[in-house]
Every structure is written in C-alpha cells, then in structure tokens.
Amino acid sequence: MLSGIILYSLATIYLIISFKKNKLKTKLALISAWKMFRKVLPDLLAIMLFVGLTLSLLSPDLISSVIGENSGLLGMVYSTILGSVALVPSFIVFPLGRTLVQNGAALPQVAVLMSTLMSVGLATLTMEQKIFGRSFAYARNASAIIMSLLFAWIVWVVMV
C-alpha cells in the first residue's frame, strides 16, 4: 500500500513537471505507457490466476511434509521445482518460509524454495520470452536456479 502511494505521488509529480516542460513528449509518454499496459495485460491475467491457483492448492502443511528435515536431495529437487513453477507475491515469500520451517521443513530446502520463488518464473516465462527472446529468458532462469541451489548449499554449510 505504501509503495503504491509513493509510486502514484512520483508518477503524478513527474507527469506534471513533464507536462509543463513539453506537452508533446508527455503525450507520447502516456501513449507508450498505455501500449505497454495493453501488451502485458493478457499475460498478467494468466499470471494472477496462476498465483491464485498455487496459493490455494498448496498449504504450508503439505509443503513442509514434502521438504522435511530428512528429505535430502529429493527434497531439494522438489523445492526447486515448486519454487520455479509457483508464483507467490514477494512480501509473502519470507513469512511463508518461516511458517514452513516452523512446520518441520529443512532450512536449505526452504532457502531454495524462497530463492527460486523470487527469481525463477516458469509462469512468467511466456512474458519474459516475448520481451527478451527465448534464449535469454531460458538462460536467465537457468542461472537463477543455479544461484538458488548454490545459496542453499551455503546455507547448509554455514547455518545447519
């Protein structure tokens, strides 16, 4: 909510300044903003429905039981897949992770899950491909998966 207020204030202030300086440029800016919005809307609708589906299908109990203390490498694989496929709003990710750990999930597995939730997006891949091209989008997601696994390994070494 707060970030919303800040964003709207910023946009309004800059829009007014821009309008005073150059009406044509401001008009072009608004047109391109509208075009961008229209281009991402179909993907956005799909992404949001996907968020709703994942959040209502996966309960913390269910996830914790799959990636518990003794889940080992297989638990790692599960949490990587889950984190890459699911899409959860970023401010929920860490409180969710904490709930999972309290429910008996292992920390490195939860670390992978959280990190992939934030950086890997199979649900948003169609959108990412349209913007950067297929090869770049795949490579970026792959690098984010590698990062998450390495991070989990560090967490395992340092904190467990």
């Binding site: 800059y14 401001t26 903003a33 961008m36």
Partner: peptide, 12 residues
Amino acid sequence: PPIFILVGLLDQ
C-alpha cells in the same frame, strides 16, 4: 499504471 507512466516518461 504509475510504473508504466514512469517508464514512459523516462523513455521520453
């Protein structure tokens, strides 16, 4: 909307 407006303004 505010994000896209800011991006549009930056573009100009």
